[in-house]
Nucleic acid binder design. Structure first.
Lengths: 258, 258
DNA sequence: CGATAGCTTGACTCACGTCAAGCCCGGTGG
DNA sequence: CCACCGGGCTTGACGTGAGTCAAGCTATCG
């Protein structure tokens, strides 16, 4: 475990050679068009790039950070840790997500942020964001909206945890993840890169690793999903979505693609 | 069911004879002090008061409201409804809460808001709120913060649903509710008014009514909680909090009372 | 005094957790 | 080149927390 805590000296390889800002602009444009001026202001944000190895802590529970962080590559997870070692992941962040915008106004950070796989994040000083927010009401709307969409996702997770069977829950999670990745242009056909162990998935879904395994087999047998190594293929998205009542509206994506 | 849908012609009895605005001001002051000017602006907000009977829908899933609503008296719940009739409550709102602030910026409302008991809410036009938000950066912070605290509560619910036993979950929920009520001055000693059937609680906790019953009995036997009719008494808050690892920090209350 | 809503209880079922063993595969080192 | 190792996946047997069904109880109300 302690070996994993160290930060990997990996270069911030951003996908497709795009710059840091493209990722952020791209993400916000999911919700509304940006003017050139707004894009310029976003580009001017000071970003400090860091890379973390799987399992390492990006933000520690209880800390009061003075930077917000943006997911640039890979996945990060927010997790609540219990004294006895149990843990529950409460959200999974994909490239383009503001991982820790709540730190801007909340006095207490109730959760840890951990690298779900190897991942790269960009830190932006709170001061710079406040400056932007206080003077650019449209950008403020959009940033606020990102936290509201996070909350909508949380509600969907609550419903899954409370009232769905394991298959539905897993299916819903995969549909959600796929749809979010597609919104950022991170899918190819009906597949996307995602390498998580079944143990990681168990902490996302609130179930035991063994049951994750069996539930995955169920979905495979139905022909809805293929998981090979670091890739997930949604072989039959429509049927899967129907089976677990997945309706992407809550993700507030401006363009409901395909 | 359809009988319950109708709006009860009940007068907007606000607690302790206080005005509408006191409740809102009081709630925001939980997070930070307000200037007199800010209080005046809040008082000037046009509020349309409505009273609903238990079970009736305040905001319908899928609608796009042009008013935000503030809980004035009683409780309201956000609920996700499934096609087969299952439902999960994703948050419970107490007087002073902004029940539906996300409607301001989110294009889709993914959940219904229902009256958890008989309750009174105030509707404020989005336009008036936008006006306030765009010109009063401090009030904007505070309003944003209320949505962030809602999100923190959601995360705690996710952790409870995913990784806690029924007793811990129920205990945690009661601690949370008590602490929030106390923050608004709605407790007397260690008791507060709360009349929910065990069926309602089941939808909050994601369990079956029968199991709610047995779990409640467990807490009573431990001497931690008394539930008589419309009142909950936290007979032994500290021990209960310890048992279910309840730490109120995530509620971001400025004054950690008692 | 029935009627009804909510609470309580017991018997049984089942989804999911736990424990433990075996398998597969890539990485390492002699 | 092969023995060894460890992490992750798979499988079976079994235990258990929680769901389901159904009946009885209690309190309130017209």
């Amino acid at each position: 475990m302690s070996v994993l805590m160290r930060k990997l000296p990996r270069a911030p390889l951003l996908h497709e050679g795009g710059g840091l800002v493209e990722i952020l602009v791209n993400a916000l444009q999911q919700y509304d068009v940006l003017t050139d001026g707004e894009k310029r202001l976003l580009s001017a944000l000071p970003i400090h790039v860091m890379t973390y190895g799987k399992g390492s802590e990006i933000v520690r529970q209880g800390e009061r950070p003075d930077h917000a962080c943006i997911q640039l590559d890979g996945f990060a997870a927010r997790a609540l840790l219990f004294a006895d070692g149990r843990r529950q992941i409460t959200s999974l962040h994909i490239p383009g997500d503001f991982v820790d915008l709540q730190g801007l106004y909340a006095k207490h950070i109730d959760h840890s942020v951990i690298a779900f796989g190897n991942c790269t994040v960009g830190f932006v000083p709170h001061a710079a964001l406040r400056q932007l927010i206080d003077h650019q009401s449209h950008l403020m709307h959009l940033l606020w909206l990102t936290t509201l969409v996070d909350a909508a996702i949380d509600r969907a997770w609550i419903a899954c945890l409370g009232r769905r069977f394991a298959v539905e829950h897993l299916g819903h999670f995969l549909c959600e993840l796929f749809t979010r990745m597609r919104g950022r242009g991170l899918t190819i056909d009906n597949a996307f890169a995602f390498s998580a162990t079944q143990i990681d998935l168990a902490d996302v879904l609130g179930m035991s690793p063994v049951h994750v395994n069996r539930t995955l087999q169920g979905l495979r047998r139905l022909g809805h999903v293929t998981l090979d190594g670091g890739r997930i293929v949604m072989s039959n998205l429509d049927e899967l979505a129907a089976m677990c009542e997945f309706d992407p509206a809550y993700l507030n994506q401006r363009v409901e693609r395909r």
